Simulated scan of single mutants.
Amino acid sequence: MTSLATIKKNGSLANKTTGSSFPSLSWFDDFAMNDFPSLFSSNFNTGISLPKVNIKEVADAFIVEMAVPGMKKSDFDINLDDHLLSISAEVESQHEDDDEGYTRREFGYSSFKRTFTLPESVDDSKINAKYDEGILVIHLPKREEAKRKPARTIKIS
């Protein structure tokens, strides 16, 4: 999904210059606007980043490349439902250290879901995917009638 507004790094859409005649408490303004994300942040997923995607069209296919390092093939779920391609993943991690009477436990959970509407020209029976060195590549071949034909000379009769 795309964002319709340019969002500052902290996700804020608010403008710090209010035009008010009251004196500004700049340290408070900075604290309020920079340390806490705005409710109006892009896609309301503050703190959760979606993987970056490259989509390119070649003569006989569309290729989707998604940067998702540190995952395994088994972490992904790729579905196709009526020209809607969904790519999702869920990862849980747990780590425990017990050293000299101290116990430290860390756990984490992360997930994402990206969806794409495929053009009618995609041959959905031949879609395939591979994951190698942190890059998920999905190959979306075009139907035969949608493939670009090579240039040719037509003789005049």
Rank of each mutant, 00 (worst) to 15 (best):
A89C: 08
P37G: 12
D30G: 14
K73G: 04
I48S: 09
L80S: 07
P23N: 14
R114C: 03
I55S: 10
S125D: 15
L13Q: 15
F40Q: 09
K52G: 05
R105S: 07
S74W: 03
S88P: 02
R105P: 04
F31P: 01
M66N: 02
K113N: 13
K8V: 02
V122E: 12
E90P: 01
V64M: 12
N10T: 14
H95L: 07
V58D: 15
N45P: 08
M66Y: 03
K9L: 14
G47W: 03
D123W: 01
S21K: 08
K52W: 05
E100G: 01
T18E: 15
N79F: 10
P23A: 15
D98W: 00
Y131D: 00
E100Q: 10
N43T: 06
P69S: 10
I127R: 02
T6I: 00
F40M: 09
D123S: 06
T18L: 15
G19P: 00
N43V: 04
F22D: 14
R114F: 00
Q94P: 05
I7L: 11
A67M: 04
V68Y: 04
P23S: 15
G108S: 15
N79L: 07
S74N: 13
R114Y: 01
D81V: 08
N34D: 15
N15R: 13
D75W: 02
G101H: 09
K73A: 12
K73R: 04
D35C: 13
K72I: 00
L84R: 06
F28H: 13
V68G: 07
L4R: 06
P37K: 11
D98A: 11
I87H: 01
F107N: 10
K126V: 01
L39Q: 03
L118Y: 11
S93V: 03
V68L: 06
V53S: 14
G11F: 05
T115E: 10
G108M: 06
S41E: 06
